[in-house]
Amino acid sequence: MDRSGEHEPTGFSTIVDLSRVTKNYETPAGEFVALDDLDLQIVEGELVAIVGKSGSGKSTLLNLMTAIDHPSRGDVTVAGTELHELTENEAARWRGRNVGLIFQFFQLLPTLTAVENILLPMDFVGRFSKSERRGRALELLRRVGIEDQADKLPTQLSGGQQQRVAIARSLANDPPLIVADEPTGNLDSKTSDAIVSLFEQLAEAGSTVVMVTHDHDIADRMPRRVELADGVIVADSMVGARPVGN
């Protein structure tokens, strides 16, 4: 894939805006700087891969843009909300409406079926009416290609199927931002390929997708690639044209 140099902001609306963000952690060995004076903007409809070695600050970056963690310094604004001002409960409510989270180990609730796992965010947030929810959940399962697995428990599904359920769950409340942390890290290459295709489809449909990955092959498929090392962005590159936004 041909890369066309460093990324430059365009005229699209910014959905993720990290400005001079620093994150420090206290460790027994002293203060550890996970992110150091970092600036990052992501516009609506982008499909972004964040890459870097272990300890480079990828997960911290994801935690900050999903209000799971607060910066030590700097501002984080996502979907128009200044996240550093949110309390834990406000952050949870905000996340439920604005972010779809996908994890490496899926994190499905083991005692709920696939469709119930998708219903759960809707139940927490209350965005859709009760009568709408099940139909929407089944539609999302159909979208990720496993509508026939709706009533199975996670343990009855393969890893790929579980990740598809997790992706469907992330879309439950129709959030403007999808954040995936190593979504293929626990899957074989064929299944990984299918999952990445799903993300591409989501981006084509207008969602903003930010994905942390170790896998350079997958990162190379992403239109934008942000590389972190020691808490700073060492490379931010785009392939081809800016995707069409909303």
Binding site: N89, A92, R93, G96, L108, F124, V125
Partner: peptide, 16 residues
């Protein structure tokens, strides 16, 4: 606790 984290991540409040 992971389920708990997952629920919070997908929008569950402390009260819920």
């Amino acid at each position: 606790r992971r389920q708990l984290g997952a629920m919070k991540a997908i929008g569950a409040t402390g009260g819920q």
